[in-house]
């Protein structure tokens, strides 16, 4: 390989944004998301990076487990108290383009209102591009549970997006 740029950069450019999105869902504090991604990615890359092929599922799984560990950790609580992070809507995690219209904004607001369990499955499936099998291993849930949550999430979005569209004029996207 003649490319002088380390492989991890190309890998991270492809998956970094998706990992951050998932980490924001998993973090107990919004300021922890980047730290979670960094910690999880560096750990996994140190183990598997030499192969040049790292399964994103491994990093998603590491993010989730770290988030659980950090939630229990007193040290992390102290760090969180020192950080001042503004809560931001889910839409801020997506690229803004001219095409993003009211409908997409309403859709993202509806995604934000999903129960956490459904939201994380949706994120991993849609943006993480993981299979249900990979998602079940990432979340330590059965395949059926994961598939059901995804189906329920889509059903809920189908119902709530029109409502969000109606209410959209009141809550504009920042």
């Amino acid at each position: 390989m003649t490319n002088s740029e380390p492989i991890w950069k190309a890998w991270f450019a492809k998956h970094g944004g998706k990992l951050l999105l998932f980490a924001k869902q998993q973090a107990r504090h919004p300021g922890d998301a980047e730290d979670l991604v960094q910690e999880a990615f560096v750990r996994i890359w140190r183990i598997y990076g030499h192969t040049g092929e790292v399964s994103p599922g491994l990093v998603y799984r590491a993010i989730r487990r770290l988030a659980i560990d950090w939630a229990r950790s007193l040290d992390r609580r102290k760090i969180r108290e020192q950080k001042v992070v503004l809560e931001s809507p889910l839409s801020s995690s997506f690229e803004r383009s001219l095409e993003i219209g009211e409908r997409n904004k309403a859709l993202l607001r509806a995604v934000e209102q999903l129960p956490k369990e459904q939201g994380e499955v949706l994120t991993l499936k849609i943006w993480g591009e993981l299979t249900f099998d990979e998602i079940s291993r990432t979340l330590d849930e059965s395949l059926n549970t994961v598939a059901s949550r995804y189906r329920y999430a889509l059903q809920k979005l189908k119902e709530s997006v029109p409502r969000e569209l109606r209410n959209g004029s009141g809550s504009s996207l920042k």
Binding site: M1, P6, I7, W8, K9, F12, A13, G16, G17, K18, L20, L21, E34, V37, Q38, F41, V42, W45, R46, G49, H50, T51, G52, S92, S93, F94, E95, I100, N104, L107, L108, W127
Partner: peptide, 26 residues
Amino acid sequence: LTPVAPSEDFCERIENALGDSGTVAM
């Protein structure tokens, strides 16, 4: 909808954290 790519600062942080293991490709 495409998630926002990680910022330059964040990538730099990752690069520093990776150290030598970041340059080992294969």
